[in-house]
């Protein structure tokens, strides 16, 4: 099962196994990663599952769709070029080892 690492702002890292086909957000929530709120449950409707993707992984992600790009305008911590909503990142073996950094807050 692919694993994904979540790095908190203080550097603390949690690495979790996430089944293929799940979103990175789902994996985080189900493993109790505190820095992901995901208030809407993954409907791309709330911008509270914001992550900064480690630059090494940026090229391997599916591009953002328009809705995600718009929601990123409204994150609690301002977006950066490597910002994504983790509900829109689909886990696959190609993303095994993905590293994402958590913002200071989500709301």
């Amino acid at each position: 099962m692919p694993n994904v690492s979540f790095v908190a702002p203080d550097g603390a890292t949690i690495t979790v196994d996430i089944p293929n086909g799940w979103s990175v957000m789902e994996g985080a929530v189900k493993h109790g990663v505190a820095g992901i709120l995901a208030e809407c449950g993954g409907a791309c409707a709330c911008a509270t599952c914001h992550v900064f993707v480690d630059p090494a992984w940026l090229g391997r992600l599916q591009p953002r769709e328009a809705g995600e790009d718009d929601l990123l305008e409204c994150t609690a911590v301002e977006r950066a070029p490597n910002s994504r909503l983790s509900c829109q990142l689909r886990v696959s073996s190609a993303l095994d080892g993905l590293v994402v950094h958590l913002p200071e807050r989500q709301a």
Partner: peptide
């Protein structure tokens, strides 16, 4: 409707 930025703002 399909305007998430309007909604968030």
């Amino acid at each position: 409707i399909n305007q998430p930025l309007d909604h968030m703002l």
